[in-house]
Simulated scan of single mutants.
Amino acid sequence: MTETEVLAVAGQQAIWACLMVGGPLLGLLLAVGVVVAILQALTQVQEAALAFVPKMVVLGLALMFGGPMAMSVLRTFTEDIFAQMVSVGGLR
């Protein structure tokens, strides 16, 4: 592969890794935000902490339970990038 092809593949892998790591977290936070917004609209309680605290609790739990998966994705991505660097530049 040429250098430009390697860069294109590395860019695609970077975007995919970002989606794999950040996508589930953003989806969870979006769902919690919608639920909290509906509850706030139903009860007419407009407290800022009521919107912030549940999101932080869910984010902490998601990072605690999904952290190993995220680290696995990032480790694989890093190993692939270094392997591509060696294939393009070689060991000198």
Rank of each mutant, 00 (worst) to 15 (best):
I15M: 12
L29E: 00
G27K: 00
V35Y: 11
M64Q: 11
A51E: 03
A70C: 11
L59E: 00
T43N: 08
E79L: 14
V36S: 04
S72N: 12
L26T: 13
A31M: 14
L29I: 04
L30F: 15
V53I: 09
I38K: 10
F77G: 03
L19M: 08
T4P: 00
A62H: 03
A51P: 02
V45Q: 14
L59V: 02
G67E: 04
A41M: 12
C18R: 05
V21F: 01
V6F: 05
Q84I: 09
V57H: 02
M1P: 02
L30I: 14
Q13S: 10
A10M: 13
T43V: 12
A51T: 07
V88A: 07
P54R: 01
V6L: 09
G27Y: 01
G33D: 08
G67A: 07
F52N: 01
L19K: 07
V21Q: 02
M85T: 15
R75G: 15
M69C: 03
Q46G: 07
M1W: 03
G23C: 04
G89D: 09
M56S: 14
E47H: 12
A8P: 01
S72I: 04
G23E: 00
A37G: 10
Q84S: 14
S72T: 13
P24W: 00
D80S: 15
V57Y: 05
M64N: 06
V35I: 15
A83D: 14
L91A: 12
P54C: 01
M85W: 08
P68T: 06
A48F: 06
T76F: 10
L29N: 01
P68S: 10
V45N: 10
A62I: 00
L39K: 09
M1L: 11
A49S: 09
I81S: 10
V35L: 15
S87M: 07
Q12P: 03
D80L: 10
E47I: 03
L59T: 01
T43G: 09
A49E: 07
V34G: 11
E3Q: 07
A62S: 02
Q44H: 15
L26S: 05
P24D: 01
L42D: 08
M1S: 11
L7I: 08
R92K: 10
L19V: 06
G11V: 02
E47V: 05
A62P: 00
L74A: 12
M1D: 12
V35P: 01
